[in-house]
Design a protein around this nucleic acid. Structure first.
Length: 329
DNA sequence: GCCCCAATAT
DNA sequence: GATATTGGGG
């Protein structure tokens, strides 16, 4: 499995104006519950035990989280055209209503009102008609539309980063493990940079929740393995497994994700989702550098702030559609 | 070449 | 505002 993937050429430079093309690379992930836990038996037991992969507590929180993700995980038949970049003139609507309030009890809150959109997700993401079996230099050269870090994508990102450990989580590796078609190293690097800032900011405030501006980031729990400067790829999931012999990055059995291009509409007419987020005083947070070099002071941060579980909410769900209502049927 | 980070551009 | 790109340093 080292199949390199290519995408068809993306229409280049016709109207290379200042027009901003935003694509959303939505993961056509089947069932989120499936993808989430890395505790899947797909990982060799040896490795699993070696790294002591923890299947726990991912769920409860994510559960809520995914209820919303679930919501917008839809997409269908854009496979018609191999040209994923420009094949998005189609009508794919995903208007979603938010899932009102969730109970603050993150434990067994199953009150998910996962509502599906009409379009069901096709699960043929593994059978993508990526017919470019050759090489397509254009795909690598031409300018691509901006990547939209959808909650799903971000989730994958965090998953990978979390399981790599701070030390091994470098753009290239992350990119490879994420296994998302068309994702570039730059994409990841940029996101990673921002993510690191987020993590650092979080460390500054041990008791406060994430700021309201951290929608994307705060929506995904930070893997515990990320909190330390573990020298190896080990996971400190509550087990003092100091000896990390293997530095082999655990391959994550993610199915390939097909990017779903979506013309970004420059309108988001909504300020807040009606969240009374008591925005913590942000601003005078002292950053320092080397958060993985020295600085021997770290607590197990538990940023599972459920007092305001915007954890799973409705951003992104506001994928309104310009006009096309339903040319389909 | 890859990585990191701050700054700047789009 | 979210990403992309760039530039300087390792």
């Amino acid at each position: 499995m080292g199949e390199e993937v290519k995408m068809s050429e993306y229409e280049g430079g016709v109207d290379c104006g200042d027009e901003e093309r935003v694509l959303e690379w939505e993961a056509g992930l089947p069932s989120v519950d499936d993808l989430t836990p890395l505790s899947q038996p797909l990982i060799p037991p040896e490795l699993a035990s070696a790294f002591s992969i923890s299947p726990v507590q991912y769920r409860t929180l994510l559960d809520v989280n995914q209820a919303s993700e679930d919501t917008l995980s839809s997409l269908r038949g854009i496979t018609q055209s191999p040209n994923i970049f420009k094949s998005l003139g189609e009508s794919h609507e995903s208007a979603v209503v938010e899932a009102d309030e969730n109970d603050r009890d993150g434990s067994g809150s199953d009150s998910r009102k996962s509502r599906k959109i009409m379009d069901c997700a096709e699960e043929d993401d593994s059978a993508l008609p990526v017919d470019n079996s050759g090489d397509d230099p254009a795909a690598r050269t031409l300018k691509r539309p901006r990547l939209v870090w959808t909650p799903h994508l971000h989730k994958r990102f965090v998953d990978v980063v979390g399981h790599l450990g701070i030390k091994n989580a470098v753009p290239k590796t992350i990119m490879q493990l994420m296994n998302v078609e068309g994702l570039t190293r730059e994409n990841v690097a940029s996101h990673l940079q921002k993510y690191r800032l987020y993590l650092k900011r979080m460390q500054g405030l041990s008791t406060e929740g994430p700021s309201a501006s951290d929608q994307l980031f705060s929506s995904t729990p930070v893997p515990q393995s990320l909190h330390e400067f573990s020298t190896a790829s080990g996971h400190s999931n509550g087990h003092s497994h100091g000896n990390g012999h293997f530095q082999v990055p655990v391959p994550i059995p993610y199915p390939p994700v097909m990017p779903m291009p979506v013309l970004g509409m420059t309108h988001h007419g909504h300020g807040h989702m009606g969240m009374p987020v008591g925005a913590p005083p942000k601003g005078a947070v002292g950053y320092h550098h080397g958060f993985e070099s020295h600085h021997h002071h770290h607590h197990p941060f538990n940023m599972l702030q459920q007092q305001r579980d915007w954890s799973g909410n409705n951003y992104g769900s506001v994928v309104t559609y310009p006009h096309v209502a339903r040319s389909d049927k």
